[in-house]
Protein backbone atom coordinates (compact mmCIF):
# COMPACT_ATOMS: atom_id res chain seq x y z
CA UNK A 1 0.00 0.00 0.00
CA UNK A 2 3.05 2.27 0.09
CA UNK A 3 3.07 3.16 -3.57
CA UNK A 4 -0.49 4.45 -3.94
CA UNK A 5 -0.12 6.38 -0.67
CA UNK A 6 2.65 8.38 -2.31
CA UNK A 7 0.49 9.09 -5.33
CA UNK A 8 -0.96 12.52 -4.61
CA UNK A 9 -3.86 11.94 -6.99
CA UNK A 10 -5.01 8.69 -5.33
CA UNK A 11 -8.26 8.91 -3.45
CA UNK A 12 -8.50 7.30 -0.01
CA UNK A 13 -11.86 5.93 1.12
CA UNK A 14 -13.16 4.35 4.30
CA UNK A 15 -12.93 0.60 3.65
CA UNK A 16 -15.92 -1.59 2.99
CA UNK A 17 -17.50 -2.77 6.23
CA UNK A 18 -16.16 0.22 8.16
CA UNK A 19 -18.10 3.31 9.10
CA UNK A 20 -16.83 6.61 10.43
CA UNK A 21 -19.13 8.61 12.65
CA UNK A 22 -19.14 11.29 15.30
CA UNK A 23 -20.21 10.00 18.70
CA UNK A 24 -21.67 12.67 20.95
CA UNK A 25 -21.40 10.44 24.05
CA UNK A 26 -17.66 9.96 23.49
CA UNK A 27 -16.92 13.41 22.11
CA UNK A 28 -14.93 11.78 19.33
CA UNK A 29 -14.99 10.32 15.86
CA UNK A 30 -15.13 6.54 15.98
CA UNK A 31 -14.50 3.96 13.31
CA UNK A 32 -17.02 1.15 13.50
CA UNK A 33 -16.46 -2.27 11.99
CA UNK A 34 -17.83 -5.77 12.49
CA UNK A 35 -18.14 -6.28 16.24
CA UNK A 36 -15.60 -3.59 17.02
CA UNK A 37 -14.83 0.10 17.34
CA UNK A 38 -11.80 2.38 17.32
CA UNK A 39 -12.04 5.71 19.09
CA UNK A 40 -10.02 8.20 17.07
CA UNK A 41 -7.96 11.09 18.32
CA UNK A 42 -8.59 14.53 16.90
CA UNK A 43 -6.17 14.49 13.99
CA UNK A 44 -7.09 10.94 12.92
CA UNK A 45 -10.74 11.98 12.89
CA UNK A 46 -9.98 15.08 10.83
CA UNK A 47 -8.09 13.06 8.23
CA UNK A 48 -10.52 10.16 7.94
CA UNK A 49 -13.49 12.52 7.76
CA UNK A 50 -12.07 13.71 4.45
CA UNK A 51 -11.49 10.22 3.02
CA UNK A 52 -14.65 9.92 0.95
CA UNK A 53 -13.20 8.21 -2.09
CA UNK A 54 -13.64 11.36 -4.19
CA UNK A 55 -11.06 13.73 -2.79
CA UNK A 56 -7.42 13.16 -3.66
CA UNK A 57 -4.59 12.89 -1.19
CA UNK A 58 -3.23 16.26 -2.30
CA UNK A 59 -6.63 17.90 -1.84
CA UNK A 60 -6.92 16.42 1.69
CA UNK A 61 -3.47 17.66 2.70
CA UNK A 62 -4.16 21.13 1.30
CA UNK A 63 -7.52 21.33 3.04
CA UNK A 64 -6.08 20.30 6.41
CA UNK A 65 -3.23 22.80 6.04
CA UNK A 66 -5.75 25.53 5.26
CA UNK A 67 -8.13 24.68 8.12
CA UNK A 68 -5.38 24.30 10.71
CA UNK A 69 -3.16 27.07 9.31
CA UNK A 70 -0.19 24.73 8.89
CA UNK A 71 2.13 24.20 5.94
CA UNK A 72 3.86 20.94 6.65
CA UNK A 73 1.22 18.25 7.10
CA UNK A 74 1.84 16.05 4.05
CA UNK A 75 4.27 13.66 5.75
CA UNK A 76 2.02 13.20 8.81
CA UNK A 77 -1.08 12.64 6.69
CA UNK A 78 0.67 10.11 4.45
CA UNK A 79 2.13 8.30 7.47
CA UNK A 80 -1.27 8.07 9.11
CA UNK A 81 -3.01 6.92 5.93
CA UNK A 82 -0.39 4.23 5.38
CA UNK A 83 -1.02 2.99 8.90
CA UNK A 84 -4.78 3.18 8.36
CA UNK A 85 -4.50 1.24 5.08
CA UNK A 86 -2.33 -1.34 6.81
CA UNK A 87 -4.98 -1.80 9.48
CA UNK A 88 -7.61 -2.15 6.76
CA UNK A 89 -9.50 1.02 7.72
CA UNK A 90 -8.81 2.78 4.44
CA UNK A 91 -8.64 1.60 0.87
CA UNK A 92 -7.28 3.45 -2.11
CA UNK A 93 -9.38 4.26 -5.11
CA UNK A 94 -7.37 4.69 -8.29
CA UNK A 95 -6.55 8.22 -9.34
CA UNK A 96 -8.95 9.81 -11.81
CA UNK A 97 -8.72 8.39 -15.31
CA UNK A 98 -6.28 10.10 -17.55
CA UNK A 99 -6.90 10.41 -21.27
CA UNK A 100 -5.88 7.19 -22.95
CA UNK A 101 -5.79 5.26 -19.67
CA UNK A 102 -7.56 1.94 -19.64
CA UNK A 103 -10.57 1.77 -17.39
Amino acid sequence: MTVPALDASARPAIARGFRLQWEVAQGAFVLLYPEGMVKLNGSAGEILQRCDGNRTLSWIVADLERVFARRDLAADVVAFLELAADKGWVEWRPSAERPGAQS
Binding site: V24, A25, Q26, L32, E35, G36, M37
Partner: peptide, 8 residues
Protein backbone atom coordinates in the same frame (compact mmCIF):
# COMPACT_ATOMS: atom_id res chain seq x y z
CA UNK B 1 -28.97 8.06 24.12
CA UNK B 2 -26.62 6.41 26.65
CA UNK B 3 -23.88 6.02 24.02
CA UNK B 4 -24.39 2.44 22.81
CA UNK B 5 -23.07 2.11 19.28
CA UNK B 6 -22.44 -1.57 18.49
CA UNK B 7 -25.56 -3.72 18.34
CA UNK B 8 -25.44 -7.51 18.23
Amino acid sequence: ALGSVQLG
